[in-house]
Design a protein around this nucleic acid. Structure first.
Lengths: 206, 206
DNA sequence: TTATGATTTAACTGTTTGGTTATACCGAAT
DNA sequence: ATTCGGTATAACCAAACAGTTAAATCATAA
């Protein structure tokens, strides 16, 4: 089947392009390098994706969706708020360990070309009721007197900040505290408990 | 005085190069664009800084020092821990408002060329007793029974994460919560109190 | 006045890069 | 056996880019 080969090559390109774009950004990535990493030649690369821009836009959209899907859990899972936070921190840290460059890549390219990201973003969230869902959950618990009267958005940003930043700034963290790789990994593991507690502490009335 | 003009031009170059490198990163920045923004020509730009690399290294070192100096406060100020945190969050948020691209720039380039940053970093902190200083303060307060037994390093990273991330991810935050510029700024102002409380809450025994 | 360093102009070099094209090869379906 | 899409090779083009050079101008200090 020709289609089979076709998909394989396309996947090889996507995998290679993803790695290189994530690590080096749009400007740092070179088509030749992507072709090399995919094990094909430049002509074929352009045969599949006509231009660097088109290739990049697809990679970016896929990366963004991967990240957004990871966040979905926060909105959809059917759990108590505390459990939700605990499980999310755990899942998210593991996800980030395996996707070291993803968040920085997204943040970077979104800053560099905000207009490009607006499209993807509004497609993803235009008919979105997830934010409302979790807001409802919170409001209910607030009325039950279990939660402090805090802005949920701030808490969400706190949660994501504390999760993402140490990975993005990994070399700085390692340098500042003079950690080797093992120490850094332990530091990340230890964070799970601390971040969870910090967040829950900041919203639950004791 | 020739020296005077000299310095002026050098300053003009540094200012321009700083803006462009911070906004676009090493790969995205072009020497011609820097020359244009400085109001001079490419020949003169190379006359002052022989290569893009040399120019970049100077800009990066300066930017890094600016950021490090801002952090110094955390280590040196003669205040109670709570006051220190409160004032730091306040100062830091204002600093970041005025230096939108600085932290992302640093994080990016440190990831892209970790070896370059190791030099600057160790020069800055090699005979450093600041970490020890604040550690001593913490230990004292722990023994006094006022503080939880938490890893200070984790708390520091939490603090910096919550401060920096919303600025770095500004377009994402605005998009997610559908904020305009004014709403975002209010959001940032409101964060000061929330971040301060969250951090203090996470370390002080009540 | 002259010498010197700062600055401009403009052309140029060499290299990298995105993208194209022509030609041929190969495997599989018809 | 032929056709066709996927793939390789290799040469090529045009633009962008870092960096250089030569010649001229300008300001100013000696």
């Amino acid at each position: 089947m020709a289609e089979d080969k076709n998909e394989n090559t396309e996947e090889k390109i996507i995998t290679a392009a993803n790695e290189i774009f994530e690590k080096k950004g749009y400007d740092g990535a070179k088509m030749q390098e992507i072709a090399d990493k995919a094990g094909i030649n430049k002509a074929l690369l352009h045969y599949y994706f006509r231009s660097k821009d088109k290739l990049f836009e697809m990679i970016f959209a896929m990366a963004f969706n991967r990240l957004a899907k990871e966040m979905d859990f926060l909105f959809n899972a059917d759990m108590s708020l505390e459990d939700k936070i605990t499980v999310f921190v755990d899942k998210h840290a593991d996800f980030l360990s395996k996707n070291r460059h993803l968040p920085l890549f997204i943040v970077n390219e979104v800053n560099r070309r905000p207009e490009m990201f607006v499209n993807i973003f509004s497609k993803l969230y235009e008919k979105d009721d997830r934010l409302k869902k979790i807001l409802a959950q919170i409001e209910k618990e607030k009325k039950a007197g279990r939660l402090k009267d805090v802005d949920l958005r701030q808490v969400m940003i706190n949660l994501i900040s504390m999760n993402v930043f140490p990975f993005a700034a990994k070399p700085l963290v390692k340098g500042l505290f003079r950690m080797d790789e093992a120490e850094f990994n332990k530091f990340i593991q230890d964070r799970k408990k601390i971040v969870t507690e910090t967040i829950i502490n900041s919203i639950v009335i004791k």
